[in-house]
Design a protein around this nucleic acid. Structure first.
Length: 467
RNA sequence: GGCUGAGUGGCAGAGUGGCUAUGCAGCGGCCUGCAAAGCCGUGGACCUCGGUUCGAAUCCGGGCUCAGCCUCCA
């Protein structure tokens, strides 16, 4: 039975879909004014794994992840770049898709964009105004009236009085209450705009997610996710908007992932301590980045460093080494070993405990190696299939083992090419046949210095690159 | 100040009221021409002070420290 930590209740709950066999999940995606950084990578990978796992349990999953393609930051960046905002967002959407693909993240079923959902957004705002939950301010803005929603603060555990007391919110003349937030923002001259009953403007950030999520999944759906930092105010506001507008319960389960940190500080744009996915991928294999994310629980903080990525790569090498020289899973009839399959599932059923699931993979790897020492090829093959199939649920170890092991740890590193290596190995093999150990060892040492490790065994020599 | 969450071996990182996490690194052995990889074995931990309990690192309370949210942020 799958149990998930629900941020709304702060406890693990048994997952019960609203409609049997089906899951609707919405995740807050990117605001596309810059390249994805590792914090974004974590959201992408975490929810990719959650969706993969739900599907592997047999659920028919509808996965929605939006794109915020109009807001202040986008407008500012487009102005800085002297570029039309549509051209800017187009570029970064493409870049995001490239990063996702590199990280092995499967695309969502639907990827709605704010600029393509304006009619739904306006309809929801009109409903909120009609029901008395929103009001037009001066100057063409429309605000949500927080005091009109009795349970405001439920998700983040905040009370309206506390928020007011600690409010260092700037005084905005047209807001009735500093806690009220904007649903529709009037366009200044020269800014992109859409027409509305309140004049030309653009949607506020919070309302777009309410409109897109309910538009794609219905008024009441199973899971809503995103980074911890979106819990308040973004998700709090989404609940207030959606439930006031539809009169229905909005979301059953909220899932929030922890941050990526650098030197024990949150990685963020404002702190300037972020690494973009593409700059990291220039140095490390994408699978190592994915492994790093999977190796810690999604709610825990994840400390990022080069050493961590080196370790991730080394750990992956162990799994790939176990798979090396085994028949490809797809070419055999063998199926998953039931005992390991059950252990894996128990781990994942417990709030997607991927570190525990990885421990199962390493146990399988050890048993493969053991079987091989005992020349039990059949067992090794069966376990190899198990390892690959379970790895697939995490989006890991699907590549060719030799290719992974022979790819440089540091992508940018330039070592000898494959042909040169093979030639030197041939020379060394001849030297070894002549028992010219001095020469054989010299060749091996030379290659070692250049990052190439040789392994003799089974009458032949294989090689790999190491960091 | 209010609200969350966290403090585990050399490092990373799970879990558990009494039973090996796992990976990397260390140590001993096997294998090897020597190595590497692999296998076997092994050392090393639960922030602090109280309480509950036959027994707590695991549950409860106080303290200390750290991170996050309360303002855009995945």
């Amino acid at each position: 039975m799958l149990r998930i930590f629900n941020s709304l209740t702060n406890q693990k709950e048994t997952f019960q879909p609203i409609s049997p066999g089906k899951v609707g999940i919405y995740v807050c995606g990117m605001t596309v004014y810059d390249y994805c950084h590792l914090g974004h990578a974590r959201v992408l990978v975490v929810f990719d794994i959650i969706v993969r796992y739900l599907r592997s349990l047999g659920f028919d999953v509808t996965y929605i992840r939006n794109i915020t393609d109009i807001d202040d930051k986008i407008i500012n960046r487009a102005n800085e770049m002297g570029e039309d905002f549509l051209a800017l967002t187009h570029r970064f959407i493409e870049a995001m898709h490239e990063d996702e693909a590199a990280l092995g993240v499967l695309p969502p079923n639907v990827e709605p964009r704010a600029t393509q959902s304006i009619d739904k957004i306006l309809a929801m705002i009109e409903t909120l105004v009609a029901k008395g939950n929103a009001y037009p301010g001066s100057g063409g803005d429309v605000y949500y009236d927080v005091s009109s929603f009795a349970t405001y603060g439920e998700l983040s555990g905040k009370r309206i009085e506390d928020l007011r007391a600690g409010a260092r919110v700037e005084i905005n003349e047209s807001k009735a209450d500093p806690l009220d937030f904007v649903l529709w923002k009037a366009a200044k001259p020269g800014e992109p705009y859409w027409d509305s009953p309140w004049g030309p403007g653009r949607p506020g950030w919070h309302i777009e997610c309410s409109a897109m999520s309910t538009g794609c999944l219905g008024n009441h759906f199973d899971i809503h996710g995103g980074g911890m930092d979106l819990k308040f105010p973004h998700h709090e506001n989404e609940i207030a908007q959606s439930e006031a507008a539809t009169g229905e319960s909005f979301v059953n389960m909220w899932i929030h992932n922890g941050f990526v940190r650098v030197s024990d500080e949150k990685m963020s744009k404002s702190l300037g301590n972020f690494f973009t996915v593409r700059e990291v991928l220039e140095k490390y294999p994408a699978e190592a980045v994915r492994y790093l994310i999977v190796a810690s629980h999604y709610r825990s903080p994840l400390n990022y460093s080069d050493q961590q990525l080196d370790q991730a790569r080394t750990s992956l090498s162990r799994l790939y080494t176990a798979l090396r020289c085994l028949p490809d899973a797809r070419t055999t009839e063998a199926s998953i070993d039931p005992a390991y399959g059950a252990r894996f599932r128990t781990a994942m059923d417990d709030d997607f405990n991927t570190p525990e699931a990885l421990a199962v993979l390493f146990d399988i790897a050890r048993e493969i190696n053991r079987a091989r020492e005992e020349n039990d090829e059949l067992k090794a093959t069966t376990l190899g299939v198990t390892l690959r199939e379970l790895g697939q649920k995490l989006g890991l170890i699907q590549g060719d083992p030799a290719a992974f092991l022979q790819t440089a740890a540091q992508v940018s590193e330039s070592g000898p090419d494959d042909e040169t290596i093979e030639k030197l190995i041939a020379e060394r093999t001849e030297a070894r046949a002549n028992k010219d150990w001095a020469k054989a060892d010299r060749i091996r040492d030379e290659l070692k210095v250049r990052g190439i490790v040789l392994e003799d065994g089974g009458g032949k020599t294989i090689w790999r690159r190491e960091g």
